[in-house]
Design a protein around this nucleic acid. Structure first.
Length: 316
DNA sequence: CTAATTTGACCTGC
DNA sequence: GCAGGTCAAATTAG
């Protein structure tokens, strides 16, 4: 729970994470160069393709994640970031509602079959604002959609596909919060307890605007004061797994449909044409204050690798 | 056929 | 009573 409970090999783990992250940063730099050259010459001539680099970057961050997983019980103080536009107060519901348990009616009429469900758990929540509905590597199943008061777009509700076969309680909500440029807010509740059986990750995207217009991706943590590093925390999980796909999605969908928000907005993007990628698309992972009054592992890492304060940014 | 999505009904907290 | 969250039958997709 507290930092004091960190394993004594923390220093070692930290060094390994630092190494991995530095390598990732270096690779991202290289990628930037590769793409720049590609744009200038009309074809990549570097020894490493952009795709190779992305793969390596992903691997680097994945390694970091796995290292962090060693510290299973660690907690990290979290806080909120300004996400710019309107913040739907409902996003904070997880904190205000105690685990109210379930209310199960014992009657057996058809109407009462819907009585048994749990209200929001008190586990930590975090949000990701992204120009696309990024894939976080987990299998989600949509179970509802609701029009939200004073919101222009409906909120979509997802639960882990393995809720029943593995009892995984992770859920998320995705809501479009901005039209132009498109911006989606995904709010995650709880951590996955399922074994991620690596279902081929679905790419969830929206393709209504040019990739050159899209804003950065923001990630913020909130809720309880615990940002555990256990399992595959979406912070890094989504980060690592979505970088490559975001390349593809923005390229492959720009001339696609102009679908509206009332549909599920979920698409599988089969395109593999990464070489065609050429847009400058900033992806910013913003971790607000990340102050480490509890020895925040992430901020420790960030500081160690000399990222610019709380923000590190990749520009592709 | 199975799994996922859609969508209106239902439930809970305020 | 209202708004948000969840359920589950019906429908659609693979």
């Amino acid at each position: 729970m507290e930092v004091s409970s960190w394993p004594e090999n923390l220093a070692t783990s930290r060094k390994r994470v630092v190494v991995e992250l530095m390598e990732g940063r270096e690779l991202a730099n290289q990628l930037q160069s590769v793409i720049a050259k590609s744009e200038a010459t009309g074809g990549g001539s570097s020894s490493l393709s952009a795709e190779d680099l992305v793969t390596k970057i992903m691997k680097s961050f994945s390694n970091s994640l796995s290292i962090l997983n060693v510290n299973e019980d660690d907690e990290v103080s979290v806080s909120q970031i300004p996400v710019g536009s309107r913040v739907d107060s409902a996003c904070l519901d997880a904190r205000k509602s105690e685990d109210s348990g379930e209310s199960c009616r014992s009657t057996s009429t058809v109407k009462d079959r819907r009585g048994c469900y749990k209200r929001r758990r008190t586990s930590e929540t975090w949000k990701i604002d992204s120009p696309t509905q990024i894939d976080d590597g987990h299998a989600w199943r949509k179970y509802g959609q609701k029009a939200i008061l004073n919101a222009s777009y409906p909120r979509n509700y997802f639960r882990c596909t393995h809720k029943y076969d593995q009892g995984c309680q992770a859920t998320k909500q995705v809501q479009r919060i901005q039209e132009d440029p498109p911006l989606f807010r995904a709010t995650y509740f709880g951590n996955h307890t399922c074994k991620n059986l690596l279902k081929a990750p679905e790419l969830i995207v929206d393709c209504t605007t040019s990739p050159r217009q899209v804003p950065p991706t923001f990630i913020s943590f909130e809720g309880t004061n615990s940002l555990s590093t256990k399992q595959d925390h979406p912070f890094f999980s989504s980060f690592t797994s979505s970088i490559k796909r975001e390349f593809k999605e923005v390229m492959s969908c720009t001339d696609h449909m102009n679908h509206n928000q009332s549909s599920s907005s979920d698409y599988l993007m089969p395109s593999d044409d990464l070489t065609a990628f050429e847009s400058h698309r900033p992806m910013t992972v913003l971790s607000s204050t990340m102050e480490s009054d509890h020895g925040d592992v992430l901020s420790d890492v960030m500081d160690s690798v000399a990222f610019d304060d709380d923000v590190f940014q990749f520009e592709f």
